[in-house]
Write a protein that binds this DNA or RNA. Structure first.
Lengths: 329, 329
DNA sequence: CTGAAAGCGCTAACAA
DNA sequence: TTGTTAGCGCTTTCAG
């Protein structure tokens, strides 16, 4: 592979001039510019990012930390991040952490090592202490997941309000016995969604029944099945279920069907996230849509701003309740 | 951020010695080693990959090209690639191409620019001409998707045999009127799977009915619905459907249900890929499991070998028919 | 408008 | 065992 020296030699100019052409610097005469461009083409030259980045001490690479690419929730967000990054001449590195500290460390080191310019973290189980430490020296943004009181800027939705809207919808269509299938409340969003759930019940003077609240370790659909199984065994069954993720809700749907009951006639179901598959179930799933694409764009812009050295503020985006068959009696 | 010089200064040694410690070179006395290690800790030093890579002209980054991360099919493969890469001290860059030539170009340039050491392509719609061109100069491996007669090594399954097994299974449980929902036959795997389908029918002296063969532009579940809708309008309906992807098959399931028919009593369904969701449908989906994880490992090993300058051979892996509710009458 | 030269952080050949 | 030094490919002053 040709390097800048060979191009300079072939064009009969100095490397500085080639560099100027490469960076479309105005102070090059048309004649020399053409000479250089010809040489570049003839040698099939491509500038080495490594050299350029070392000199500029930047990599133009953004790290995106997700627990697992298997989770369809992240798809649209990543699209937003990617498009924003590319239009700002950045590329993104998708990093699957499996919420594994060792994996995380590899990626944290990449920014310490100047191999990446910043991080967008979407891992709810990220080691916050390390992340905060890193954030003191390097540009970091949290997307969707965040921790209260941290100093890292974030973009997310109002989880409490979203849950409140979901439960209120169920109440309005006549439900009084509404179960909540929540994830582990070590996650902030889980605590916030529970608050929204309780707020809606209180507002309509409905009792908060502890038996109706489930907690799951993970969001996979098997956990939805388990929780629903428990709920169906209750003397007094709920007539509606709000699950904090679509994958859980799909498990709920499956278990209800398996017991010969039907949705929404016997039990109405609301999910959260509006993943692609939420439209493929039978019945289709009522769910809370997060503005994923916009969230991705926002996170990327925040990070790029932060890399530029600007102060960035956290942002709350709006959600939307998407009413589909699973609550349309 | 401290650099190697500052460490050397603080430890009272030369940069070469620091480099030796960094690369665990044996020829350093325990005393100096300790001095250097102390200095590294005190300065909180992290070596710059940029400097190292420029010097070694390698980036230890592998590009993984996929059309879309939304496709669950790639999840396990990527896991395999990632684990293999990490244990060989490589990192992977997940690149979503959207089968868009412009996006592709960005990533092709990254390897030309020395920002990445090689490519694993899983994009069936990749620009093969460009990929072949690139392959002359840089290490490239195709995974799952490939083209006949190319010079790029690949790892994949025997698609013809897999389709043959799927259809034979349907025949053995008593079906004679078996439909095929195939993707566009511009893809090699689509042509191969059709051959397997026809081979099984021929072997059991069943006629090949053109009306039973559908082609879809894409693999999204909506296309499965459309195709099934067409099949259900036939005077003589098929009693079984083999769809070349699980997402298509899920669409098929949905459309059959929507018409008040049931699976597998009225129509049996077989998918392909064993994606996570194939176990979440009602009924669960019989499908062909590809050894995704192993495929990922194999592809990564092939690429790393190729980077080392070794010749690598293409590999065919075994598949497995997973029989579940959608064909268990 | 162009060239010479320093230097980004690191490794490795060579010398001591 | 350790130090000196050249150089990886590029950008950017500073002179001219």
């Amino acid at each position: 592979m040709a390097n800048i020296q060979q191009v300079a030699h072939k064009a009969g100019v100095s490397v500085a001039t080639v560099s100027r052409v490469l960076n479309s610097n105005a102070t090059v005469s048309p004649k020399t510019r053409i000479k250089v461009e010809t040489a570049i083409k003839e040698l099939n030259y491509e500038p080495s990012m490594l050299g350029r980045n070392l000199r500029n001490s930047e990599s133009r690479l953004l790290l995106v930390l997700i627990p697992s690419i298997a989770n369809p929730f992240y798809t649209e967000i990543i699209n937003g991040i990617e498009n924003t990054a590319i239009s700002n001449k950045y590329n993104i590195l998708l990093c699957e952490t499996d919420s594994n500290p060792q994996r995380e460390n590899i990626y944290f080191n990449m920014v310490k090592n100047k191999l990446a310019d910043g991080i967008i973290s979407m891992d709810p189980a990220v080691n916050m202490q390390k992340l905060n430490e890193l954030a003191e020296q390097y540009p970091i943004v949290q997307c969707s997941e965040y921790t209260e009181g941290g100093c890292i800027p974030y973009v997310t939705i109002n989880n409490e309000l979203a849950a409140y809207n979901a439960v209120k919808h169920l109440i309005k269509i006549g439900h009084q016995k509404i179960a909540l299938i929540n994830s582990d409340e070590k996650f902030l969003y889980a605590r916030q969604r529970r608050q929204g759930y309780e707020k809606a019940l209180k507002e309509f003077q409905l009792p908060i029944n502890k038996d109706f609240i489930c907690h799951t370790e993970q969001l996979e659909f098997e956990y939805g099945i388990q929780s629903m199984r428990r709920l169906l065994k209750l003397k007094e069954r709920p007539t509606a279920v709000f699950a904090v993720s679509d994958t859980l809700a799909i498990g709920v749907l499956k278990e209800i069907n398996a017991n010969g009951l039907s949705v929404p006639e016997d039990i109405a179901v609301v999910g959260f996230d509006k993943i692609t598959f939420s439209n493929m179930t039978n019945p289709t799933l009522t769910t809370i849509a997060q503005p994923m694409y916009k969230m991705g764009i926002t996170a990327a812009n925040m990070l790029i701003n932060s890399i530029k050295g600007n102060e960035v503020e956290s942002i709350l985006l709006d959600h939307e309740l998407v009413i589909r068959e699973s609550t349309m009696g």
